[in-house]
């Protein structure tokens, strides 16, 4: 155990946790906006898979990470339109249609992968700051700062984007007219409607935000891992939905949840690699992140109150 509590190992574990948390955070922030407007989207994982494949295939063909991320966003947008039409305008049951979106994403991303790629071919991973074309040299001295360098600066741009989105989403929800409308239609759509707020339009845009971030989360995941394969996300989208509840629909607490999940996962893998967890206990160790998340949900999230109109379709009377 003493080998874990050395500064270099602790820093490396924290840095791994930050990297690991990024796709969870992006997807959960998007889902937070959607849920605050009263729309639950269980299709996040499917949208992530489609975004992941789109980004991976684009980079495989063009070698451009930027284009890959844009494709991920575009796929999120398209899936957002689909989900919004089904849930907001056709008033479909949100849980069921979300699962439908997930299954579609799971199957279609795999079909596209089989038809267009076949055998997994690694692509170039998203570059860390010091490897950014043209400007990488500026960051090299920062990465070499003892301990802090690897922790804070040895990441790719999507890591910083994800964490900067936390205050951005907080500001969007709390300080803008759109954010107030989102909260209003999530709490009491009838009242919001009577005050002239278009519930359908507000929810439509909120879903767009959520799905774009889901697509971007998938793209980031694929380009961080530099590969794609069947069911690459392995349920990240569902954990992201759980993190929204964990974070009580507050972006900063959602971020805390994503970091906690990343930290628990990184710690258990590090402990296994240092033989702190015996091999025979690997199955139990693999369950730890899920167990801790569930415990945290039970202990913390039950005190929080979600949007009153969450999962309830709005029909004008």
């Amino acid at each position: 155990m003493s080998q874990f509590f050395t500064l270099s190992v602790l820093i490396a574990t924290l840095a791994t946790a930050i990297k690991f948390a990024v796709p969870y955070l992006l997807a959960a922030l998007g889902e937070t906006i959607g849920q605050r407007s009263g729309v639950l989207n269980l299709g996040v994982d499917g949208i992530m898979l489609l975004g992941a494949f789109g980004a991976y295939y684009t980079v495989l063909e063009t070698d451009s990470h930027l284009l890959g991320l844009i494709v991920g966003i575009a796929i999120g947008l398209i899936m957002g339109v689909l989900y919004a039409v089904v849930t907001v305008f056709l008033h479909a049951q949100q849980g069921i249609s979300g699962i439908g979106i997930f299954l579609f994403g799971l199957g279609f991303s795999d079909l596209l992968f089989q038809e267009l790629v076949g055998t997994t071919k690694p692509v170039k991973p998203l570059p860390t700051l010091d490897k950014l074309p043209g400007v990488g040299g500026i960051f090299e001295p920062l990465i070499e700062i003892e301990y802090l360098g690897p922790l804070l600066f040895d990441h790719n741009l999507m890591t910083y984007t994800a964490f900067l989105l936390v205050p951005a989403v907080t500001w969007l929800l709390n300080k803008t007219t759109f954010g107030m409308n989102v909260r209003a239609v999530g709490e009491n759509p009838q009242a919001a409607d009577s005050l002239g707020v278009s519930v359908a339009r507000t929810r439509f845009i909120a879903i767009m935000f959520g799905c774009v971030l889901a697509g971007l989360a998938g793209a980031t995941l694929a380009l961080q891992l530099a590969v794609f394969q069947h069911n690459l996300t392995n349920g990240i989208g569902f954990i992201a939905v759980a993190l929204v509840y964990f974070g009580a629909w507050q972006p900063r607490w959602v971020m805390a949840g994503a970091l906690l999940y990343g930290l628990v996962t990184a710690t258990r893998l590090r402990w296994q690699s240092l033989d702190i967890i015996p091999q025979g206990a690997s199955d139990i160790a693999a369950m730890t992140p899920a167990i801790i998340t569930i415990l945290a949900l039970v202990l913390l999230a039950r005190r929080a109150r979600g949007p009153a109109a969450l999962t309830k379709p709005f029909t004008r009377h």
């Binding site: 069947h230 392995n234 091999q279 690997s282």
Partner: peptide, 25 residues
Amino acid sequence: PSIVYTGSFSDVALATTTAQAHADN
């Protein structure tokens, strides 16, 4: 050798993180 079982045949993210932990070690 340092052996880590991720608990999944298909989770690429866990395999990547595990390998990175080995590399860091």
